[in-house]
Every structure is written in C-alpha cells, then in structure tokens.
Design a protein around this nucleic acid. Structure first.
Length: 799
RNA sequence: GCUGGAGUGGUGGAAUGGCAUACACGUCGGUCUCAAAAACCGAUGGGGGCAACUCCGUGAGGGUUCAACUCCCUCCUCCAGCACCA
C-alpha cells in the first residue's frame, strides 16, 4: 500500500493558503528569524536548482518555526530583464504581460512544492510601487554625488545591444548570452561603489558565517594592492610621471619606464621627435585590439621608444621612456617602472628590445651573482645589492624601509591601488527601471522631483531588436517639461541594470506595501538583518557585493543602524546530471513538475536533501528519489503497528535521535539528520512504535516533508496543524547508558570489544581487559608496556 | 601565477585526534507468490584462509602521537574565482 501523496499534498497546500499559515508579523515580544532565499527571475518554470535552493530554505524556516521563533520567510520576483523583451519580439506580446503571466505560473509551481512563504509580502520588481523606490534611491545617490554620468570606455555586448558592468563580463563574454564583449566610448550613468571600497573590504572580516570562498572572491574582486607611487621626473621638464609599484625594494634596478599607450602624456612626449610616427602607429594598432587579446599573458609584449627620458629619483639615473601594450591605463597610474631582473614581463620585454638590466636582489644561496646569468627574472627573496645605503638588507625588510625613506624625501607616496571600478548601471533596454533624469537645454541634468515619482514605463514601445533604447522611440515618454524652468526637455531613455533592483529587496520585504519610503524603518529594525540567506554561488560577487554597498549607503542615510545585511550565508551546490550541469543545450534537464507528479513534492524534497550536503554538488539520481518515496511509505505503515507503551530501548533510541537531528538541523546537515531518522524508523519498524514515539518522529520529519507530516499528524488524532506544535526535546537522563561497549585496541588496532558498567573504576577495567579472550594471545605472556584508557570511549594496550 | 575548495567502497555520501566506510542506492542470496511487482529478512572495501582469524586499505610520500581520513611538512590531481594588476 502506498500513501496517496497527490490527494494529501493538494489538501494541505489549499489549507495553508486559505489560512495564510505562514503570515509573519513583527512582535517585539518574540525572537525573530528572517530567512531569505535569493528570489528568482520569473521564467515561468522552476528548475531543480530552484527546488534545491528553496527546499533548503523551507526546511530551515519550518524548523525555526517549530523551535518557537517568529519566522519571516518571504518570496518575490526579480522581474525586470531582457528575456521579457526577447519574448516580446518573438511573440508580439508586451513585456509586462509576458512577465506577469510567468509570475503566475511560477507561483503555482512554487506552491506545488509546499514552500512556506508569506505570500502576503510578495513583491515584483517590475511593479511601479517597487521600482519607484529604485528611482528614489538613485536620486538620493545623485544628491550625494554617488550617481554620476561620465564618458568612458565601456563594455558593450553586441548581441544584447547594451552596456555591461565589469562584474557582468565573464571571461571576456557577456554573462547572459556569452557573446564576445566589445569596447565602446559612451556617456553612461555610474554608481560610485568605489566610495565604499575600504568598508567593503574591511567588513568582510565581520562575516564570520559566510563561506570562505565567497569571502575570497569578494576580496579578489575588490583587489587592494599596497605599494608606492614613485615620482619620476621628466628629463628637461618639471613634469612628473607617477608610477605604481608593489616592489619598491627593486627601485634601484629600474632601467626604463613604460607608459600605457592611452597615457595622456604620450602624445606630448613624442611631439616633434623622430619616433613620433612609429609610436603613433603603434598606439593606433593597440587601440584596435580587443581587451581580451590585449590582456592575455601569452601574447608577445610589443612596444616603442618615445625618444624621451625620465629621472629615477633614488639615484638620479636617466632611464628611457617606452610605450607598451602590456601596461594598462585603467590600473595603477597607467605607468610602471620596469625591473627586468626581478619581473618576468619586464624581463621578456627587455630581452626583445635589448634594454639593460641590473641585479638588485641577490638570492641568499648566492646562486645568482649578476644580471647576465639570469635566464628569467628572479622574483624570490634575497639580499639588496646595487641599492645604495640599503645594500645587505633582506629585501622584505628593505621594502618598508625604502618606502618610508622615499616618502620622507618626497620621492614617492605610500599608496594602495584597487581593482574595483565604479558600477555602470545604464542599460539601453526597455524592461527596466527608467533612470529618473531629465535633460534640459537650459538647466542641464535635472533630477526628477520626488513628487513626480515613479517615472512610469510606457505600457508599450517598439521592439525591433535592432538596438538603441526602445524608450527613445516613445515620444510621449521622451518629451517632457523641465521641472526647473518648465521649458522643453527630454527624458533619459536608458534604464537601470536589474542588479539595482535586487540590491535592496531584502529591506522591502520588511514592509512591502509601505508608501512613504523604500521601507518602514520600524519594521526593518525588527526584522533585519537577514539571519540566514541562501542562494547560488554565481552571485558571490555581483549581487552580494552590490547589496553590501546599498546597505552601507542606507546606513549613511541613517535609515538603518547596521552595516552588513546578511548574517549567515549558505551557497548551495548545483544539481548535476551525469556529472554535468543541467541545461537545455545539453538536453539533460529533469523537470521538477514531472517528478512531483510521479512521486510527490515531499519525496522530491526528501531526496534532494538526503543525496548530498547543501553546499556540495548534487548528482541527480532517479533511483534515489524512488528510495526516498519508499522510505516515506515505510514511515506511513508504522501507524498500522502501534503498540501501547514504548519499550525503554525505544525511548532511548528516540531521545538519541532527537539530540542528533536537532544538532544537525541547526547546522544545515540535513543529509545526516535524515540518516538518523531512517535509523530510528528501521529500529521501530518491526517491533512497532507507540503513539508518542511516532509523533516525535513525524514532527522531526515535518520540516522536510510537510504535507506528509500534517496528514499523519492528523491521523494520530491531532486537531491543530503540526506547525503549531513544538520541536521535541530530549531528556539527557535517558541518554545515559548503564552498560557501555568499549572497543579494545592493541597498538592502536581494534582487536576486541568488552561490555562493562559505565562507572567501572579504571583498575577494575584494566583487570578485565587483560583477561579478555582475544587480548590474551597478543600479550604473549608478557605485561603490557602501557594501557591508555579514554573514559567511556576506548582502551588501547601498548605491547 | 595568485586565492579558495576538494580527493574515502561499484555509486551518492558518513566519521574533525579514539571502532574507517553510518544512512541510502546498486548488486547478490532468501521469504511470500502459479508468476511478477510490492513488502520483508540477510550479505556486500580488497587479499589470504574450511574456519577461528589475519594482512592491506581514506590521492602519493614523510612526520607528530599510545592512536591520524582528521594535525604538521613536501608533492600530485581535480573544481572554482581572479589575472600582462605593475
């Protein structure tokens, strides 16, 4: 006999919905728990990745509820973005219609999984009630100079016909469509995330409950590197060329300096020089290269001499100034000092162009004594040579000494440079938040006044897929009166990157219908911070970095009093099939919906939690799903074999399980928690359980298989929902065993076991152990050298 | 190259100094059945032995310890992020 999952699941989903069973309300008398999973893009269908992410969250949410917390577990939709526009082009629909239809479908699918969301808090970022506040936030940033417009070389996706943020370029391709990203000079809107770079880096240290790898990735991305900006004076001029180095210990070995081809000084340096023509054609050539080619390290390093010289401030030496493609304008000062002996790139370049080199760090073992012996740059530690007063010092020590000395003498400045760039948010797309800016021929850039928010998206626009902002073609949208002078003006027609929307949605969930501000500060004070956040590793940089930035901004506005939004972060692993990521192109997608039809949502939830720990990759296994279903049926049948009173061993077993499962749930170790529940089931299955034992088992299963548990709970005679009951407590008294089995090791290897009373004194235990049948032959008649007793754990005899 | 993570049966995985392989999948054997499915019971790291038992075994090698999957050192392999970043 099998339990009727279809009927049971529908029944309980209906009840939960009717009762608003998971509605959360702030209550200062109760301890809150804010559990959040990264909200989805509403594609219309959920995939196994969603199932895994949201199942993990749901179990945690229901577990915390049973533990008595006031849990908020909201859900919404990250609803702006390109697929809606693509669908509009393809199906001749409006992006809004398509999106809201998908949201409906997606809600239905999520409900079929039995997730315990407070649907009363649902938000969709494409609602003007939501994106109004994107515009409000943007304007607050604009007021403070954190949103600004600049013309610059930007990443351009030719396929999506829009600009991209640095964070959206993955291996030289577009994060969405993988098309090769091009460079373009455009005037665009930026958010000054670099204003917060120190805090973003420093506060990573607070995030004790984040995975190492996410912290490492953010650290890399922010990319602080400390060194010295050294002032090289231009020969025959007062002009100074600052170069950045992290290896100031090698300054005495700098034999030339190199500028990036885009360096503003280059054209001035070559003016009227015999090299002018050659350098100009080189610059032109580099300008044509794509960034991907330019920055790949295996390309030959090319360059040209400018005909000018600079003065090394530490020894007043004249060094030639070169231009080369391996120096990038956007990092450091766009200029470097070259030390061919101790930097491999400089070494290769110097070899190619016959530039001199000088040894300034000598390996301590004396293996290298002069620059001529080097076959490659020596980048290791060593003693300073040819370095004036610093000779003989270990280079690692000399580094700080030289830096201090240079700063004191005005030769340079101790300085850090960062990898993090400002965030480009302009997108030449329709389906996003309109940037609330008006361009007036008289007044210039004018922000839309708060009272005119939201700047609503027109319901329709011409979608051709030919590029250019569709909004620019909507006359009624573009033409507007200037809020300052009331003269004719035009609106900004670009929209915001969708990552803007998701950078603060966790705050909106605290008061989703609030009309006076993005969020109600009182509500946020109660609910924030997010106690547990769960989502995919793909957001390790983008979304998580932006959310941290917004949080710090709100703190500066004094709207909140914390500086990090997410206390604990769990990044769940991917769901694989045959060792590969499930994807349409591979044709290896397993549709959750068909699995729900065949085995039920509960079995699917159980399998996905049991098959692997949450952070690791999970291999899809249909047979594993069948196994989960079989287990549920096994538990279901226990009700047919109820006994009147639980035997003492059974109770002991139960309390052991409660202890283990409670600990495992708290640490998100669902796979081992389930294993314990299976052990308990196996232990009572044949002999029969009493009502109490079965009830406790069902409560412990309920976060994982909620419909199943509700039904069985009712059958056992309970009138209220199982989620109104309490998580079982274990009785430590019951866990104490009178007799324990001790393993006996000889020289660290297991040879025997002995059952003894728990409190047997050590000398008695020793006596018993030495008389053990299996131990005696190993002693060969001699006395043991040593007997180690780990109380109540094991005995080890050394012979 | 830098940074982070991982490597355990046929498979997913368990064990954070103390009984290696819990739990499950698979496989094999059995019970029930005319038969099959379901359900139930049992076996299942490798070698040797009729057996009691014994030797080997957690990517490789070394070390610390009475005792190492676990700690330390040296390396290998795989995955991920960053990278002509000065």
């Amino acid at each position: 006999m099998q339990y009727n999952f279809k009927e049971i699941e529908e029944k309980w989903q209906k009840k939960w919905q009717e009762n608003h069973a998971f509605r959360a309300q702030a209550d200062s008398g109760r301890k809150k728990y804010y559990l959040l999973e990264m909200f989805p893009y509403p594609s219309g269908k959920i995939h196994m990745g969603h199932v895994r992410n949201y199942t993990i969250g749901d179990v945690a949410s229901r577990f915390k509820t049973l533990q008595g917390y006031n849990v908020m577990h909201p859900m919404g939709f990250d609803a702006f973005g390109q697929p809606a526009e693509n669908a509009a082009i393809k199906n001749k629909t409006r992006p809004a219609d398509w999106t809201y239809k998908c949201i409906k479908e997606m809600e239905t699918e999520l409900k079929k999984m039995g997730f315990s969301y407070d649907w009363d808090r649902e938000v969709a970022t494409c609602d003007s009630e939501y994106y109004k506040w994107n515009q409000w936030i943007f304007l607050k940033m604009f007021e403070r100079g954190l949103a600004y417009k600049k013309s610059s070389n930007v990443n351009w996706c030719p396929s999506c016909q829009t600009t991209l943020a640095n964070e959206e370029v993955i291996e030289g391709g577009c994060w969405r469509c993988h098309a090769k990203v091009e460079q373009k000079d455009l005037e665009q809107w930026y958010l000054k995330i670099t204003e917060y770079k120190e805090k973003l880096l420093e506060d990573l240290g607070q995030l004790k409950n984040w995975p190492e790898r996410v912290l490492a990735m953010q650290n890399n991305w922010i990319g602080k590197s400390s060194g010295v900006d050294i002032n090289f004076r231009l020969k025959g001029s007062d002009k100074v060329i600052p170069v950045f180095t992290t290896r100031v210990d090698t300054i005495f070995g700098a034999t030339y300096i190199v500028l990036a081809p885009e360096h503003p000084l280059v054209r001035e340096l070559i003016k009227g020089k015999p090299q002018e023509k050659e350098v100009l054609s080189f610059i032109e050539k580099v300008a044509k290269e794509s960034k991907l080619v330019r920055t790949s390290s295996d390309v030959k390093k090319e360059g040209a001499f400018t005909g000018s010289f600079a003065i090394n401030p530490v020894n007043n030496e004249e060094v030639p100034i070169w231009v080369a493609d391996y120096v990038l304008m956007e990092y450091g000062t766009g200029a470097i000092m070259a030390v061919p002996t101790h930097d491999q790139r400089d070494f290769l370049f110097a070899q190619e162009h016959q530039l001199p080199r000088r040894l300034v760090i000598m390996p301590k073992d004396g293996s290298v004594k002069s620059a001529e012996e080097l076959k490659e740059a020596y980048e290791g530690e060593g003693l300073q040579v040819n370095s004036g007063e610093f000779n003989g010092l270990l280079n690692t020590e000399a580094k700080t000494k030289i830096a201090g000395w240079m700063e004191k003498n005005g030769m340079g400045k101790i300085q850090a440079h960062w990898r993090l760039r400002d965030w480009l948010i302009s997108r030449q797309r329709y389906w996003g938040t309109p940037i609330p800016i008006i361009y007036c021929p008289q007044c210039g850039i004018v922000p839309v006044p708060d009272k005119d928010l939201p700047v609503e998206l027109p319901a329709d626009a011409p979608f051709t897929g030919e590029g250019g902002s569709p909004l620019a073609k909507v006359k009624e949208f573009v033409e507007v009166k200037c809020p300052r002078c009331a003269g004719g003006a035009r609106r900004e027609t670009d929209t915001m990157a969708t990552f803007f929307d998701s950078s603060w949605y966790f705050l909106r969930f605290c008061s989703p219908k609030f009309t006076a501000a993005p969020f109600d500060q009182q509500e946020a004070k109660y609910w924030m911070v997010v106690d547990q956040y769960i989502g995919g590793i793909e957001h390790a940089i983008l979304h998580l970095l932006y959310s941290r930035f917004f949080t710090k901004f709100f703190q500066d506005l004094k709207m909140i009093d914390f500086n990090e939004p997410f206390d604990r972060l769990l990044t769940q692993g991917m769901v694989l099939k045959d060792g590969e990521v499930m994807s349409k192109s591979r044709g290896n997608i397993v549709d959750p919906d068909s699995m729900i039809k065949d085995y039920g949502a509960d079995a699917l939830r159980l399998f996905i939690l049991f098959a692997a720990p949450p952070e690791t990759e999970l291999e899809w296994d249909k047979r594993g799903l069948e196994g989960a279903f079989k287990f549920l049926n096994r538990v279901w049948r226990i009700q047919d074999n109820l006994v009147d009173t639980a035997r003492p061993e059974m109770l002991k077993n139960l309390h052991k399980t409660i202890k283990k499962v409670s600990a495992d749930f708290s640490e998100f170790k669902f796979n081992t928690a389930i294993a314990s529940l299976m052990e308990l089931t196996n232990a009572v299955y044949q002999s029969g359980a009493d009502r109490k034992v079965l009830q406790s088992l069902v409560i412990m299963l309920s976060p994982i298989v909620p419909h199943f548990a509700e039904e069985l709970w009712g059958i056992l005679g309970n009138k209220e929902s199982i989620f109104k009951s309490a998580w079982p407590q274990y009785d430590p008294q019951l866990l104490v065993e009178e007799n324990i089995e001790l393993p006996i090791q000889i020289n660290g290897k297991l040879r025997s076991k002995i059952e003894v009373s728990r409190n047997l004194p050590e000398d008695k235990l020793k006596e018993l152990v030495l008389l053990d049948q299996k131990v005696v032959p190993w002693l060969e008649g001699r006395a043991p050298k040593k007997i180690i007793i780990v109380p109540q754990k094991l005995v080890n005899i050394v012979v």
